[in-house]
Amino acid sequence: MNGEQPGVLEGAIPPGENTVLFGHDAAQSFLANAYRSGRMHHAILIEGPQGVGKATLAYRFARHMLAHPDPLSAPEMIADSGPDDPLTRQIASGASHNLLHLARPVDEKTGKVKSVITVDEVRKAGKFFGQTSGTGNWRIAIIDPADDLNRNAANALLKILEEPPKRSLFLVLSHTPGRLLPTIRSRCLSLRLQPLSAPDLDLALGHLGAAPGEADAIIRLSEGSVARALLLRNYGGAEIAEAFVDIIERGSLANREPIHKLAETLSARDRDVAYQFFTELVIDRIQAMARDAGAAGDLNEADRLARLSVELAEHFATAAAYNLDRKQTVLHVFTLFFR
């Protein structure tokens, strides 16, 4: 983990520093051809599950454009770049004047990453595009992810998208595009990335240092996501998932000991990432259970679980917004499930 970069998981390579991408050949070819055509859309919504390579693809395409500012003479394929390439090093260090990365900022008072991308961050994009590039090159903004924009920030971004500057590109990343303002989605060209295949995920984990065969069990649980694989491997995610499923399969609150044990584990001071993994796991698993119930013809159970997933998402959002006690937040998950 690059400890100086908030939000980067242990064992991961920050997207701006990652020079290779596994899978997504069709998406890369689409972007390269769209750029070469000279008629590329000014905003591309790169959507797909978390951890499948959206940010890495965005940085990779940005490097491609900045290295070949004339679209008509650009290569047909986006090539890997070496770590010693000057442009690669410039982008990795955040020193490029032609690339802006917008993400949740660090709160100067607490030292922790804020829960949203604020309007002040988006205003940086306004200033960024308002400056004249000394090289006449493209100016590219990566919004990572746009799901984190609060309402004011989303509206501020929309204003820029409505009147995009010349030779500008917005790469808007989203794990859940349905949460974005419809007006933002309508101004973007959508490019969806699928979960990685097992062979590609194996290659990606090998690139991050996993030995051959070491990650077989993790790959089966990762649903094609490198981020989920790292959470399972380095943050105790496998044990958390196993404990959650075991409690759910018990079917009642009769034995509260494993519930309290899980809640205490997740509420420890140094378990921020594990807790976030748990909140996502809960929503994903219950949504999957709702789909399975629907497929089996149990529409009442499917409806109950679908409603529960929405209620739990709101529960977690409220707990985060008001900094509520995590142990009680976790305990309430099972109260809602078994009511």
Score class of each variant (00 low, 15 high):
274 A>M: 10
201 L>A: 06
307 R>I: 01
246 D>G: 13
290 A>V: 01
29 S>F: 04
47 E>N: 06
270 D>H: 10
251 G>V: 10
8 V>T: 11
300 N>K: 13
286 I>E: 12
41 H>P: 07
162 E>P: 02
296 A>K: 08
61 F>Y: 02
319 A>S: 15
6 P>A: 14
196 L>K: 05
69 P>F: 11
332 H>Q: 11
17 E>K: 12
150 N>S: 10
74 A>H: 09
248 I>F: 10
303 D>T: 12
169 L>Q: 12
106 V>S: 02
106 V>E: 06
209 G>W: 02
231 L>P: 11
135 T>D: 12
299 L>A: 11
119 V>R: 05
297 G>M: 00
236 G>W: 06
305 L>N: 05
269 R>L: 05
142 I>G: 06
112 K>P: 08
160 I>C: 04
85 D>C: 06
152 N>P: 02
205 L>F: 07
223 E>D: 15
160 I>G: 07
47 E>W: 07
127 K>C: 02
225 S>N: 13
50 Q>C: 09
299 L>P: 09
116 V>C: 01
181 L>E: 14
19 T>Y: 04
183 T>W: 09
79 A>N: 12
178 G>E: 08
330 V>K: 05
308 L>Y: 00
2 N>H: 13
35 Y>G: 01
143 I>D: 14
270 D>L: 04
190 S>V: 08
339 R>Q: 10
101 H>N: 04
324 L>M: 07
35 Y>F: 15
251 G>F: 07
155 N>Q: 10
254 A>F: 09
315 H>C: 07
273 V>G: 00
285 R>A: 10
60 R>M: 15
107 D>I: 06
242 E>N: 12
321 A>C: 01
127 K>F: 02
120 D>M: 04
113 V>K: 14
207 H>Q: 14
315 H>D: 11
194 Q>W: 10
178 G>V: 04
332 H>L: 15
222 S>N: 01
164 P>T: 15
251 G>W: 04
229 A>E: 03
132 T>S: 11
180 L>R: 03
206 G>P: 06
219 I>H: 00
133 S>E: 13
47 E>Y: 02
65 M>W: 03
284 D>K: 11
7 G>E: 12
163 E>Y: 05
339 R>D: 15
300 N>Y: 08
216 D>E: 14
44 I>L: 09
309 S>D: 13
102 L>W: 03
179 R>Q: 12
96 S>A: 13
161 L>R: 05
134 G>T: 15
78 I>S: 08
